[in-house]
């Protein structure tokens, strides 16, 4: 169980993290979501004791951070980097030795993981000869080679092609089944939606939404409508019963006012769009994110101009 309570960090005049609390239990995945610059990475760095919080506490199974805890955490930073001039296996083994894994055991595990990520043929190559995506896979291997109980991944999916995203997703679910506490940050809501048990949405340094994924979506009710059509959907956001609309070329997601009935908008569409699909469902995490962060942004802008 990883518990962070009321974390705070100030950088000069900017309050980067403002009383952020979060929790991750064994066998569960917590998604830390938020727009760029929200304070996700700073929060993660404080959990890892890389930067010292100005306030708040972090506990691992009730124990404060210590050197002993360090080897039980795996970390994939957002800013990827490796020793460029070194051979792949050599670099992996160095980090394993830093985390106290014996050389022979580290080597065995390294080969296993390299094989799973289709990197085995590269083991003797210099890291700089690898593609960006492959380098990222190497970094993931470095983060998990010491079999950590707590896994903290900052934007693990960014930069991976769909095939590798699936490999990574499968491994994450497998680690979850093994009982690891996993925290990952992302701003790709669809990834979060498919993987997380719980979410914690941070905006401008503050937690603005948190809880079990199901519960959060439930809170936003079953008043979202998804449309697929042909025609110009620009008018959709202007409809009276629509609270927010995300309109794409042939696809739109509409969030309705709480008291509005979904069927009520059907007549409005008649003759304007060639409908191919009309579905009433829970709003996507993406829509929730856009609504909350968008509203906050609008409020902040309004405050500034006032």
């Amino acid at each position: 169980m990883l518990t962070a309570a009321k974390l705070r960090k100030q950088f000069g005049p900017v309050l980067a993290v403002n009383d952020v609390s979060l929790e991750s239990a064994p066998g569960r995945i917590l998604g830390v979501l938020g727009p760029n610059g929200a304070g996700k990475t700073t929060t993660i760095r404080m959990i890892l004791n890389i930067i010292e919080p100005d306030g708040g506490t972090v506990h691992f199974d009730g124990v404060a951070f210590s050197e002993a805890v360090r080897n039980r955490i795996g970390y994939l930073p957002e800013e990827r980097g490796l020793y460029r001039k070194n051979k792949l296996l050599h670099a992996i083994l160095y980090f394993a030795s830093l985390r106290g894994v014996h050389a022979a055991e580290a080597k065995r595990r390294a080969y296993t993981w390299l094989e799973r990520f289709n990197l085995l043929s590269y083991y003797d190559r210099k890291i700089e000869e690898l593609s960006k995506g492959n380098q990222q896979k190497v970094q993931f291997i470095i983060a998990i080679l010491h079999d950590p109980e707590y896994l903290i991944l900052d934007e693990p999916f960014s930069g991976l092609d769909p095939l590798n995203q699936i490999i990574l997703k499968d491994i994450l679910l497998e680690l979850k089944r093994q009982g690891k506490s996993i925290i990952f940050s992302t701003h790709q809501m669809d990834q979060a939606e498919r993987l997380c048990d719980a979410i914690c949405l941070i905006n401008a340094g503050k937690v603005v939404l948190e809880g079990e994924l199901k519960e959060v979506k439930h809170r936003y009710g079953k008043n979202a409508v998804v449309l697929e059509y042909e025609g110009n959907g620009a008018f959709l956001s202007g409809l009276p019963s629509v609270k927010a609309a995300h309109v794409y070329e042939n696809y739109a997601e509409l969030l309705l006012h709480p008291d509005a009935l979904p069927d009520a908008i059907l007549p409005e569409l008649a003759g304007k769009l060639a409908l191919r699909k009309f579905e009433v469902l829970q709003p996507s995490l993406n829509a929730i994110f856009l609504e909350i962060v968008g509203n906050a942004g609008a409020a902040a802008r309004a405050e500034k101009t006032a």
């Binding site: 930073p77 990827r80 980097g81 830093l98």
Partner: peptide
Amino acid sequence: SNRVVEVLMSSAS
């Protein structure tokens, strides 16, 4: 500059 330092900082004090 190659960003290794953050991984290092998470692995050792």
